[in-house]
Design a binder for these strands. Structure first.
Lengths: 222, 222
DNA sequence: TAGATTGTTAATCGATTAACAATC
DNA sequence: TAGATTGTTAATCGATTAACAATC
């Protein structure tokens, strides 16, 4: 399966999945693209287009999509049954907040360890859904990844000045996917073709709102 | 100024601004679109297109953009001199992490108060860049907003089940911009035309990576 | 059957990239 | 001057929306 998927598509797929979770319908019920529109706000045309694009062709005319089958397809795309073990680089407040992010749990994304340079953090544990996840020293990362070769994804929540260096290090150690939560643009090291890097610019949506509100003269009054 | 701005544009504008900050050049130096490309990774064509779109026409042929002038223009778009006071609804780990998010400080976005329903949180303070920001009870929101009428933006970091109800409440109380950090799609209440709502789906970029890595058969080996 | 809903194609819209005349 | 770089237009690309034949 070599299809490219955009952030927008994967996000909508998440919405469909969450809609199903929320509705909690019996397995043999059917749900139509129009119903999915009502719940998710994504137009029924877009829903069908997404399904078409991803090869989900399980619909029945006049009925819609069987809940059980749809669940299965969406789970497959979201890799929910497989799950994914990840590490978090940077055990500051953001790193710890992400570690216990409930939605990761729902998606079977499991933070297995955090890494930091601060001696006062190293050796502590973060309480994540009943598990104690260790905070380790960044110097032990190499050894840790050798022992946990299933881990191919890292979340980067370090201060921005050390972000690029750590990204390079992660790639060198064989990490294949990095979500960059620092506000800096990070570049993929030369030659690291198979590595995926996504910048998750947390502030950006706020600045959009600031722009809209402070530049467009929207009335302040209620 | 009625121009619409997309999230992508505003994010790139942020990158240009941060590039200038990072370079820390003398006011009278010039920087070209090509140099900006080198630092930010955004193509020089895109840089000029963005400037054109936003009416930034301060460039000099053969030289580029004067640092001082460019700073001024970018600050204007990002509302950095004006700044923005915001509140955070939900004082959980994510809400508190966002409150002390360094980039907000750089951008002159100031979290003035957090609100929560948990009695054990209410009355505490969050230490944000040398200021003590109070956690207040959600029932006091109405009164608080009456006394702080400059606040028009709220960040929503509550559990998803209460998110829509709180959003409606915020709109009722006159809030004009809401950044939704919950993983649920929230709808703008009927008739609330001037209100901006942006969904900042924190998990989404991770799921994209999970998809890429687990669906495309990328080699695991180093 | 008639109505509803899919799968799929075509049209539209928006964003990015490329090109280049103007000119410092 | 010649080279470099802008501002702006045109071309391309990708994503969304609309349309509709197929059919349950």
């Amino acid at each position: 399966m070599k299809k490219k998927i955009s952030l927008r598509v994967i996000r909508r797929i998440s919405f469909y999945y969450e809609a199903l979770l929320k509705l909690n319908l019996p397995d043999d019920h059917y749900i139509s693209s129009t119903q999915l529109e009502d719940i998710t706000g994504v137009s029924c045309n877009q829903v069908r287009q997404d399904f078409f694009y991803l090869g989900i062709s399980i619909g029945k005319q006049k009925k819609g999509y069987q809940v059980k089958k749809l669940f299965k397809e969406l789970k497959k795309i979201l890799s929910i049954d497989t799950g994914a073990d990840v590490i978090v680089i940077g055990a500051g407040r953001l790193g710890r907040a992400l570690s216990e992010y409930k939605l990761f749990k729902v998606r079977n994304v499991n933070v297995k360890a955090l890494f930091d340079v601060k001696e006062e953090l190293v050796g502590n544990f973060v309480h994540v859904f009943g598990e104690e996840v260790p905070i380790m020293h960044i110097d032990d990362l190499d050894e840790y990844l050798k022992q946990h070769s299933q881990i191919r994804i890292a979340l980067l929540t370090v201060p921005e000045h050390s972000a690029q260096a750590l990204l390079d290090k992660l790639v060198n150690l064989g990490i294949k996917g990095i979500v960059n939560f620092t506000p800096r643009i990070l570049k993929r090291p030369e030659g690291a073709m198979g590595v995926q890097i996504v910048n998750d610019c947390i502030g950006a949506s706020l600045y959009k709102i600031v722009y809209q509100i402070y530049h467009q003269g929207i009335d302040k009054a209620k």
